[in-house]
Write a protein that binds this DNA or RNA. Structure first.
Ligand SMILES: [Mn+2]
Ligand SMILES: [Mn+2]
Ligand SMILES: [Mn+2]
Ligand SMILES: [Mn+2]
Lengths: 227, 227
DNA sequence: AATTAATTTTAGACAAAACTAAAAAATTGT
DNA sequence: ACAATTTTTTAGTTTTGTCTAAAATTAATT
């Protein structure tokens, strides 16, 4: 399918994406003010744009009732999200950007219009399933495996996942992780939880290590639901 | 230097690039009509835009006198051309696009604003000197080695260069090249020219071959002037 | 030199995407 | 229930980049 045949502007695309994200998997209708805040614009501008998107039947909109993406709009949103996340993988895996530097650039790259480009990029990256932040990458048809991102401290013994983020991004904590050879992208499995102090034993590439409760509450693990 | 701090729009950037290309290395002033034709827009629109670019002192403009890039404008043009050509190399070398498919996509990618991105892309590609069409890639400061693109038939014995294009792009000719293992990107050296029929002996990776005058008039060689 | 032709600029209009200020509707608190 | 507050929409501007039609300037021909 070729969504950009709709001739969408960059601004329209960003609105569609924002509405998708605010709708919680397109389940609840989104308020004008929420969109305005997210897009750093004014509610009146949002109303104007929402009317236009409604004209193009990308959203369902009734005055004062909030807005929800149509099926067409949902697919457009997912195709932009797909591009955004594939570019983020490219920036980290191929150009050696840090995982926290890529968002701004991907925000631009996601608007490049070329099906061939994104297909070939996908192949070049080895068809990744998640982006550097652990968020799932939809396929061409907008299908993706929902993923759960949780703090290690919230998981039971036996859980397994990829380390995709930190809660505490202080230099001290990041230095600590480095020292203990814990890096974004590593796969962890929870082996044991000590009731006494909440510390945990987890297995990593380089063997099993013990982490304090404080560390466990500051590391996010990405559990991909295989289905 | 950080040219996008000028906050240039996509449209302004395309105008600057077009003016540079039409000015023949910024040596002669460019006519309004020429810009309009190239940009597929109307002369009146060009006049409007040229006034704005003049306000930003990117071009030197006097009514009815045509337009020329200022030094600032020339550097902006070269930074866009640098990005365009680096992306073209990426598309061909890394994503396996054909050399004649990349221009349209690069026309979009050249407007992505991020110094870090283009630096890292440059490194990832191994600091290429020319793009897939044999055109030179300016460095960060807008410096590039001028290159000459000539038909093989116009060159003397001893000339050496990289095959960067075809004059005749018919399927028949391209198939012929394939059969004789002549590909874009190959380095050729002219060993001998037969006065009788104008045929030539050239050395390639896979030994030396003989090509007819007709072939020699349909293949472009890129001779980079090392300086 | 004068007329004709081509090029370039001006004037006025329009669509996209933003804004401010004010009106209208929905929500909340008493 | 109704006044106060919040949310949303409308009305009227602005900027950017385009357009058409008409006027001004320059170039080309006789
Ligand atoms: Mn964006
Ligand atoms: Mn991401
Ligand atoms: Mn362009
Ligand atoms: Mn090129």
């Amino acid at each position: 399918m070729c969504y950009y045949c709709l001739e969408m502007t960059l601004s329209e695309e960003d609105y569609i994406k924002t509405i998708y994200h605010l709708s919680d998997f397109n389940s609840k209708s989104v308020a004008t003010n929420a969109i305005a805040e997210q897009m750093k614009t004014k509610p009146s501008s949002v109303t104007d744009m929402v009317k236009k998107l409604s004209e193009k039947s990308l959203v369902n909109y009734k005055k004062y009732q909030g807005v929800l993406l149509s099926e067409k709009g949902r697919l457009v949103a997912l195709s932009i999200i797909r591009k955004h996340r594939l570019w983020e993988v490219f920036l980290v895996d191929k150009l050696n950007f840090a995982w926290d530097e890529v968002h701004v650039v991907a925000e631009q790259l996601e608007h490049i219009k070329s099906d061939a480009l994104i297909d070939k990029l996908d192949a070049h990256l080895g068809y990744p399933k998640v982006d550097p932040h652990g968020d799932p990458i939809p396929n061409k048809d907008g299908v993706f495996t929902k993923s759960v991102k949780k703090l290690i401290s919230e998981l039971p013994v036996g859980s397994q996942g990829v380390c995709v983020g930190v809660n505490d991004s202080s230099a001290a904590f990041l230095k600590f992780l480095d020292k203990n050879k814990i890096a974004l992208g590593d796969t962890f499995k929870i082996l044991e939880i000590e009731e006494f102090d909440g510390s945990m034993t987890i297995s990593t590439r380089s063997g099993s290590i013990r982490i304090s409760k404080q560390i466990a509450t500051n590391l996010f693990l990405e559990i991909v639901d295989e289905e």
